[in-house]
Deep mutational scan, measured.
Amino acid sequence: NSLAEAKVLANRELDKYGVSDYYKNLINNAKTVEGVKALIDEILA
């Protein structure tokens, strides 16, 4: 998966839960796919 794909999928996942734009910005600023995954795990914990 590319970083861009990971960000799109992460933001879709956040949308399902009604997560605020603050967290979407964190996702969009992530530098690695692993970073995106770690943020998602933390946000949805």
Rank of each mutant, 00 (worst) to 15 (best):
K37Y: 15
V33A: 04
K37L: 13
A6Q: 06
E42C: 14
I27P: 00
D21I: 11
E13M: 15
Y22R: 07
S20L: 07
D21S: 14
I40V: 14
N28I: 07
N1P: 13
V36C: 01
Y17L: 14
K7P: 00
A38I: 10
K7E: 01
E34F: 07
A30L: 05
L44Y: 05
S20K: 05
N11Y: 15
T32C: 03
A10Q: 01
R12S: 08
Y23E: 03
A6T: 06
G35T: 13
Y17M: 13
Y23C: 05
L26T: 03
G35I: 11
A10H: 01
D41S: 11
A10W: 04
N25C: 09
D41G: 08
K24Q: 05
I43A: 09
I43R: 01
L14Y: 02
D41F: 13
E42R: 15
L14R: 01
V8R: 15
A6M: 12
N29W: 07
A38K: 12
Y17H: 12
T32S: 09
V36E: 00
K24A: 05
A38T: 09
L9P: 00
L39H: 02
Y22V: 08
K7Y: 02
Y23D: 03
I40A: 07
L3F: 02
N29S: 12
A30R: 03
N29P: 00
L39S: 01
V19N: 05
L9F: 08
E13D: 04
G18Q: 07
I40T: 07
V33I: 15
A10K: 01
V19I: 14
N11D: 03
N1L: 15
E34R: 07
A6S: 06
V8F: 13
A45P: 05
L14Q: 01
S2P: 12
N29I: 07
A4E: 10
Y22W: 11
A30C: 06
L26M: 09
D15L: 11
N11T: 11
L26K: 09
Y23T: 03
K16Q: 07
Y22F: 10
L44W: 06
D21A: 15
I43C: 03
L44S: 04
A30V: 04
K31Y: 07
E42G: 08
E34V: 04
Y22C: 11
K16Y: 06
V8G: 06
L3I: 04
G35A: 15
Y22S: 04
D21G: 10
Y17C: 03
Y17K: 05
N11E: 07
L9N: 12
E5A: 12
A4W: 15
I40G: 01
K31L: 13
S2V: 10
I40R: 09
V33G: 02
A6I: 11
E5S: 06
V36H: 00
A10I: 03
E34H: 06
V19F: 15
D15Y: 10
S20W: 10
A30T: 05
T32W: 01
V33R: 04
E13T: 14
K24N: 03
K24V: 05
K24H: 05
V36T: 02
S20D: 08
N11V: 14
T32K: 02
L9Q: 10
V8Q: 13
N1H: 12
L9V: 08
